[in-house]
């Protein structure tokens, strides 16, 4: 049962990330490799504010979202000008920047969480408290599962509300033909600022839940592998609707779990998982380029 609850928590976390990335990939047509960076920003801000400033779950979560939304300018400002492959490179640069920051902002002699050793480098931050707010204390697996599921549902509702609105239509139009949309008097720069702020803020929510559940965070949360995994979820599941990223998260989280039953030695399991991602992507691009449940084909 605990195993299933653990899976449910992970599924909720990655569903939020996939839905957030879908806003950028599916609705703006921009491939971003920096989503894990914003996920980690959420984790670190949550960890630092709860550990060092004694914030509760909700203030820490709010701050994490705010910081990620602010840092989303690192992507949204270049997105004014860069598209296609150039934007992928920009997002890769942002991703590397985040990873380097989390990895290198350390000083072995100083206490973790201080200005000189903010992230504690590769050793990360441990002892992150479990979520607790009002009368609710998520200190057991079922309670964290419920909390993560509720947050994922809220994020899903937020996405549904926003993306089915005229704002969602504006984003789709921007993806289809930005210049034509500008010719209709629409402020596409503002739309990009908004969509990146919302998407990165949502990734930070996922990061905060992750940090509070695992109780530990290190720079690997911001690794390129993580970003690629998140992007794969969106591409395999399909973009430009709500169910695509959910299906993608489910499929790509299920594969490694199923592999556990295949009795593959641990030393190969990671590589086999990567191979399977690769094969899944190749098959997907060939037979169903719009993803399992997607509506739009990324060019």
């Amino acid at each position: 049962m605990n195993y299933l609850l653990h899976l449910l928590i992970y599924l909720s976390i990655y569903s939020i990330v996939a839905m957030s990335l879908n806003m950028i990939v599916g609705y703006c047509g921009l491939l971003s490799l920096a989503q894990a960076g914003y996920f980690a920003v959420g984790s670190y801000v949550y960890a630092l504010t709860t550990l060092k400033l004694g914030f509760g779950f909700l203030p820490a979560l709010t701050l994490a979202v705010g910081v990620a939304a602010l840092l989303s300018l690192a992507l949204s400002l270049p997105a004014w000008r860069f598209k296609g492959d150039s934007f992928v490179m920009v997002s890769l640069a942002v991703q590397t920047l985040f990873f380097s920051m989390f990895f290198n902002w350390s000083n072995p002699g100083a206490e973790p969480g201080t200005v000189t050793n903010l992230t504690n480098g590769p050793f990360g931050l441990a002892g992150i408290p479990k979520p607790s707010f009002f009368q609710f204390k998520a200190d057991s697996l079922p309670s964290i599962a419920i909390l993560s599921l509720v947050l994922a549902t809220l994020c899903g509702l937020l996405c549904w509300r926003l993306l089915s609105s005229p704002w969602g239509r504006l984003l789709k139009s921007m993806r289809d033909d930005e210049l034509a949309l500008r010719g209709l008097g629409k402020n596409v720069r503002l739309a990009k600022l908004q969509v990146f702020a919302i998407a990165c803020g949502m990734a930070a929510i996922a990061g905060a839940i992750y940090a509070s559940y695992v109780g530990y965070i290190n720079p690997s949360a911001a690794s390129l592998d993580q970003s690629i995994l998140m992007l794969c979820m969106v591409l395999v599941g399909g973009v430009s609707n709500l169910k695509g990223p959910l299906v993608g998260a489910l499929v790509l989280l299920t594969i490694p779990e199923l592999l556990r039953f295949a009795q593959i030695p641990d030393e190969f399991a990671a590589n086999v998982r990567l191979m399977l991602y690769g094969v899944a992507l190749v098959l997907m691009m060939h037979f169903r380029p719009q993803g399992i449940a997607g509506e739009y084909r990324i060019q």
Binding site: S173, D176, L179, L181, Y296
Partner: peptide
């Protein structure tokens, strides 16, 4: 340069100032 993924009504509605 119509917005190809949308229907004609949405193509016009998106233009509303």
């Amino acid at each position: 340069r119509l917005f190809s993924s949308q229907n004609l009504r949405d193509n016009l509605a998106v233009a509303a100032p």
